[in-house]
Amino acid sequence: MSPVRELDVGTVTEAVKDLCITANYDLPRDVYEALERAKKTEESPVGVEVLKQLLENADIAARDRVPICQDTGLAVFFVELGQDVNLVGGDLGAAIDEGVRRGYQEGYLRKSVVEEPAHARRNTKDNTPAIVHTTVVPGDRFKITMMAKGGGAENMSTLNMLKPAQGWAGMSQAVVDTVSRAGSNPCPPVVIGVGIGGTIEAVTLLAKKALLREIGSVHPDSRIAAMEAELLARINALGIGPQGLGGRTTCLAVFIEEMPCHIASMPMAVNVQCHAQRHKSVTL
C-alpha cells in the first residue's frame, strides 16, 4: 500500500489566492509571444495598432501589478487530486472559495459573479463561488490550475449536437461559423478550444480544458494537428482581424481534443477565449 500524504487545505487557500492575482496580472509568455508574431505579420494598419496596444497593456499590467483586463473573470479551477493525498483541515471547496475571496480582494480584482441569475442578479461581492472541476489521478500530488474566464468571449461559445454523417466537414464548418458570427464581440485575436465526442457536459469541459494548451504546441495525433492547422487558416481568412476592425489576425491558435461518444452522437463544443488568455497552475 502506498503511503498517504497529508495536505492542509489552508495551503490550498494560499495557493489559490496567489494564482488568482498573478494569473490576472501576468499574461502567459506563449500568448505574449503569439501577439508579437502577429504584430509582425498583420497587414491592417489598425490591426497592427491594436496588437501594439495589447503588448503595451501586458507590459503595464506586469510592471504596475494591475489586471490585464477589468473583466477578471469567473474563477474556474481544474484540480488534479492524487488518490494518495489526504486533505485535512477543512472542506476543499470552502478552502478554494476562501482563496478566491482573498485573491480578488487583495489583488484589486473585479467581482463579477451574480447569484440568482434568473431574477435578482445580485452581486456576491467576493467573486465566489468558484467553478471547480476535479479529477482524481494516481499519485500523491495535488495540482490546481486557475483560469480567469471573462464573460464576453464565453458568451460567444457554442454547443453543437451534430449528426455523425456530417463528419469533419460539418464540424469544421460549425467552428468557423461560431467565430464568424462572434465577429468583434469576443475580443479577437481569439484562442479556440474545441471538444469533440462524449456527452453535452463532457464535451464542453473538454473544450475548456483544450484552452490550457500552450500556443505553439503541436497535438501528438498528427490527424488532429492537421485539423487544427486547417481551422486556424480558415478562421484567419475571415478577415475579422484584431478587435474585429479588419485584418489577418483573428485567431492565435485552435486546440482540439476528442473523446469517445455514443454511436448515435457527434457532440462538438467550441469554447471561445479572448486574447487575454489567463491561466496558471501550481502543484502542491
Binding site: 491594436v50 496596444q53 495589447l54 503595451e56 497593456n57 503595464i60 499590467a61 504596475d64 494591475v66 489586471p67 490585464i68 483586463c69 477589468q70 473583466d71 464576453g152 468583434s184 475580443c187 478587435q243 474585429g244 476592425l245 479572448c274 486574447h275 487575454a276
Partner: peptide, 8 residues
C-alpha cells in the same frame, strides 16, 4: 471602439 482587453 476602444481596445477590449487593454484595460491597464
Amino acid at each position: 471602439a476602444a481596445t477590449g482587453g487593454a484595460g491597464a
